[in-house]
Design a protein around this nucleic acid. Sequence first.
RNA 1: GGCCCGGUCGUCUAGAGGCCUAGGAUGCCUCCCUUUCAAGGAGGAGACCACGGGUUCGAAUCCCGUCCGGGCUACCA
Length: 530
Amino acid sequence: MTSHDLTAPTRRVRTRFAPSPTGFLHIGAFRTALFSFLLARRFGGDFILRIEDTDQARLVTNSLADIIGSLLALGIGYDEGPDKASVAALDAEKYGVVDPALLPDHGGDYGPYFQSQRLPRYRELLDQLLEEGKAYYAFETKEDLDRMRKAADIRKEPFRYNGKYRNYPLGEARDRVAGGESAVIRFKMPTDGPIRTVDALRGETVWDARTQDDFVILKGDGFPPYHFSSMVDDHDMAISHILRSEEWISSTPKHVCLFDAFGWEPPIFVHTPNVLGNDRKKLSKRTGAPPVKGTIYKPNGEPVIGLLDQGYLEDAVFNYLSITGWSPGDDTEVMTREEITRRFNLEGISASPALFDRDKLTWLNGVYLRHLSPAALVERALPYLIAAKLLPADPTPSERTYAASVIVLEQERLKTLDEIPGLTDFFFYPLPEYADKSVAKWLKKVGVAEYLTDVAVALGEVENWDAETVETATRGAGEKHGREKGDLTHPVRVAVTGREVGPSLFDAMGAMGSERVLARLAHAVEIARG
RNA sequence: GGCCCGGUCGUCUAGAGGCCUAGGAUGCCUCCCUUUCAAGGAGGAGACCACGGGUUCGAAUCCCGUCCGGGCUACCA
């Protein structure tokens, strides 16, 4: 997998997740966050959440709340990051509101953790680079650049900024800027020779400096772009490992040159493979990649519901995400958070992208659902019943008890919590909805009306109604009609549930109670005769 | 186009020159269990390890080339 010894880091492991609040993140992004979190936990280090809000124009209201809420919901808590005060200082119009209860009182000693609040530090470093002749003001406008790009395109040449202002006197440039002229600052990349970068997963890559150009490190709006701010922060925050998705590989030479210019030791770069959609493209809203929670909308307006809201368990999503793109080295797949944390390592991260496998997630979720205690399952399932209006928003104790007895009957069949209403609705209706096919197959048959009548009579005499007494009574009636196995249960099942599949018939009847069962039987007899 | 990264069953993966006639999981199929479904148990189909050359007694594993897929190529991240 890799030729590098990735174990036993030499300095304190500090990793970071540094999203930009410019939209709602999908699970691919959270997978990267999870790996960062896991690496820090594995080595007893720190996991930092830093918000890269240097692109003020693209800020999306409430995406900050979504990022923090989703991370915390998954159990990916940060040791350092946005706190009550720093979030309160934000412009709520632009950022939206974050529930203060989610935020720590003190964000950490390396803050602020919002890049928009770190401008003075960038300015200081920018000046240093300018003074040292490692960066320069450039006066082209975006339009100028566009023209140059088009011209290069026509000549079929790759576009590289020509470095026109590379040697422009700093004093003159400052005068022009002071005079109100708009400018950017660009970083002087080496003009030739090799640039070496090392990725923990892929080893060394040598880049030809002639393919690089002087990139912008301060935009016209006064904010530095990612290439600058992110690297400065990674250094200032003593980040040991940069885990980021693989589309950053090509800009790594920029980043190492920046570290070099400052004389800083660069962190270890770990480019994690992307999580792909079924189209083998990077997961995106377009392809319907689900968010962790909440709802996002595809470009065509179609809603995509968050995994957690679809009834996937936090633990299952955590587990699934951890094994897509990482393997502990053996065949273990179902692991607790503790086991994942204990076993996580860089060596197990795959260098090739993985497809988001919904089927496997669903299977894993079923495993977790089955491991839930009955009480916990009920707790998690109730909201879905309420949302489906099978239960009132504030159920009475007896409604609750009834719902609970019904929910536990479906535990072994459940794959996602949101299946609960569809699986149990007939328990709540006055009478079930009878599927025509099932009626034709099991009710409208010779002798069924008589059989069901006898079942009703036998059940009517049951004193202590429970699954066991109900079974005895039903079987007694069945034997009288020479019925056994499916012949015995199926007509009754269809009569009381309206369908052919479901939990154990006697358990179901036990939970329903005699009144419901007898009413349904009476109704079914009519259908059978009709 | 240029530069870069990747390529083992449909999917997620194990694999660090002989343990590989390639293992596990998921999905699919069959059977068992069983009042149905599910769960569980037992099987099965499914990968000429992208392709072609080399190195080696021996290669999925090392080297080269090709192809395919993906990423980047912004005053976005």
